[in-house]
Design a protein around this nucleic acid. Structure first.
Length: 559
DNA sequence: GTAGGATGTCATGCC
DNA sequence: ATGGCATGACATCCT
């Protein structure tokens, strides 16, 4: 401490800290002795290193900012500093010394300071060695000249290429050493956002970390904030995610799973809180975004938020998909009529509002597709909700549509309870019957349509037949008229052997089936078509007789 | 409040 | 015997 003013400030700070703890029985020598012993150990080297540490601090700040490339949400510079600054600097913070229960406890404080005088120099020694490297100095210059926006890899690349050949390997090693040292010190390797924002927690973590230096066995507190597990599962105490805990949501980009996975296969309890909790955890496991999975409140918020926006068709489809997912995943225990009505109101409200038109209540202009879908939201999903509630291993679609053999193999491959077995059979039966009913109704409708078409066709055919009949009746009438005229003409020209005409009231003409025409006296009922010998044969085959009646041949027989 | 359409579900018979 | 299909009847929901 060559600078008298700096030393005065240091002494002043010690006095302030001591006065805070004097009521707790801490002697002045605890502070003074430890610090002075430490000051004696470091002396001038410490002074120069402090400068470089400040430089390094600046570097670390910029390195944290550079981490934008990973898309990670970085903590505030204060928390970053808390990680990057050596532990001795942290202890000098008045905020920590005033607030931390560790430093407020004289025994812990003394122990802490004694550890500080022993352990931290190892860390500081490493920093000193690193910062004393010539290539690191070059790296600092590069940082100064290139600005703070370069990613770490780029900076490494630049420094590596710009460095003289012998220094390149050392520079890379130095950077790796820096990052390794930091990660070793705090066991925070990936999302720094998972570090606690509370300085007290940071301090306690650091204390535990430094206390465990040299002990390879990870203590719970050592790994409690570790975010670098391979499967990205954040090891944290129970983390309740809800809309009110926005801070935690921000600082926990990876959702936390504290339940065993196999628990999700168990049938959920009937009590709503537990079901809701499992519902949330299921979302967590499925990797849903927090904004969607935080619960019904947020979903409703998102749904209603969509109300105020003018969204396109794709958005509407997505919204409906979300709604479908939501209703599909809604546990059966939540499926009371009230909840159902509320849900439906929510869904239909969103749908109506997204169409930017007034609610078509009791209006015939309601979009049939929308209303049909709205009804379907409730109806179609019942079995899906039951399946979800019973944690059936097959989807409803598969349950219904799989062939019998595949279906039996599938359900035999799982160990299902009797309730699950019954439900899966019922779902298949209902699904099959549902499709059968739909096809049956469609057939019936088609049948009605076909019958109506047949009725129309038959009506048209009937009209045609009627017209044909009328036409033929007219033709028949005309033919009859012609025949009557012809008959009268024939009868008028007919003569007996004396040249007298026959009386039409006494005789008539009749034609047999073989074409022969007979003159029959009226009142004679010739039932047969066979000509008799006593009947006058008026017309016969030409070779039999010739008569004088026109061009016809008559056979005349007297009465 | 009521009528009517749409749909789901059950019961039953048949293959 | 079993499963699927067809269909009438009823219930429910919605307009």
């Amino acid at each position: 401490m060559d600078d008298p003013s700096a030393q005065f400030q240091h002494e002043d700070l010690i006095d302030i800290l001591w006065r805070q703890d004097v009521d707790l029985g801490v002697k002045r020598e605890i502070f003074d002795g430890c610090l002075r012993q430490r000051e004696e150990e470091n002396t001038r080297a410490r002074e120069t290193e402090l400068k470089r540490e400040q430089e390094f601090e600046r570097i670390m700040q910029r390195l944290q900012k550079l981490d934008k490339e990973t898309g990670e949400f970085l903590p505030s510079p204060s928390s970053v500093n808390s990680q990057a600054v050596p532990f001795s600097e942290t202890l000098h913070s008045t905020e920590f010394t005033q607030r931390s229960p560790v430093t407020q406890n004289p025994l812990l404080s003394a122990l802490l300071l004694s550890q500080k005088s022993q352990k931290p120099p190892c860390q500081e020694q490493a920093f000193s060695e690193l910062l004393s490297l010539p290539d690191l100095q070059y790296y600092l210059d590069v940082l100064e000249s290139e600005g703070s926006s370069l990613p770490l890899e780029d900076i490494t690349e630049i420094s590596h290429h710009n460095l003289p050949e012998p220094q390149r390997e050392n520079s890379t090693d130095a950077l790796c050493g820096i990052t390794q040292t930091i990660s070793d010190s705090f066991e925070v390797s990936q999302p720094l956002s998972c570090m606690p924002s509370d300085p007290i927690e940071i301090l306690e973590t650091c204390i535990q970390t430094f206390s465990d230096q040299g002990n390879p066995t990870p203590s719970p507190s050592n790994t409690i904030y570790s975010c670098s597990t391979p499967d990205n599962h954040v090891i944290l105490p129970k983390c309740h995610i809800n809309s009110s805990d926005s801070t935690l949501s921000e600082f926990c980009p990876y959702t936390i799973n504290t339940s065993k996975p196999e628990q999700l296969n168990c049938a959920p309890g009937r009590d709503a809180p537990q079901t809701l909790l499992q519902f949330e955890e299921r979302h967590v496991l499925l990797g849903f975004d927090d904004s969607v999975s935080v619960g019904s409140l947020d979903l409703e918020t998102s749904l209603y938020a969509a109300d105020t926006l003018s969204i396109g068709q794709s958005d509407k489809d997505e919204l409906e998909s979300i709604q479908s997912d939501y209703t599909d995943l809604l546990p059966l225990s939540m499926h009371s009529d009230a909840v159902e009505a509320t849900l439906y109101e929510t869904v239909t409200s969103a749908q109506h509002q997204t169409q930017n038109e007034p609610t078509p209540k009791n209006s015939n202009q309601a979009n049939p597709l929308t209303t049909s879908r709205a009804a379907g939201v409730r109806r179609v999903c019942r079995d899906e909700q039951r399946a979800q509630a019973m944690s059936l291993p097959l989807s409803v679609h598969d349950i219904i549509n799989l062939p019998v053999e595949a279906f039996n193999e599938a359900i035999n491959s799982y160990k299902l309870s009797s309730a699950q077995h019954t439900l899966i059979r019922d779902i298949r039966r209902r699904g099959k019957n549902k499709m059968a009913a739909q096809s049956c109704r469609k057939r019936k409708l088609d049948c009605f349509i076909d019958l109506e078409d047949e009725i129309e066709r038959l009506k048209r055919e009937k009209e045609q037949i009627k017209e044909e009949n009328e036409r033929r009746a007219r033709e028949l009438q005309e033919t009859k008229e012609k025949l009557k005229k012809l008959y009268n003409e024939v009868f008028r020209r007919l003569r007996d052997e004396h040249g007298n005409s026959y009386n039409p009231r006494e005789y008539k003409l009749q034609q047999s089936t073989d074409g022969t025409v007979y003159l029959l006296p009226r009142g004679t009922a010739n039932k047969t078509n066979t000509p008799t010998e006593d009947l006058p044969l008026l017309y016969n085959k030409p070779e039999v007789q010739q008569s004088s009646f026109g061009d016809c041949n008559f056979t005349h027989q007297g009465p």
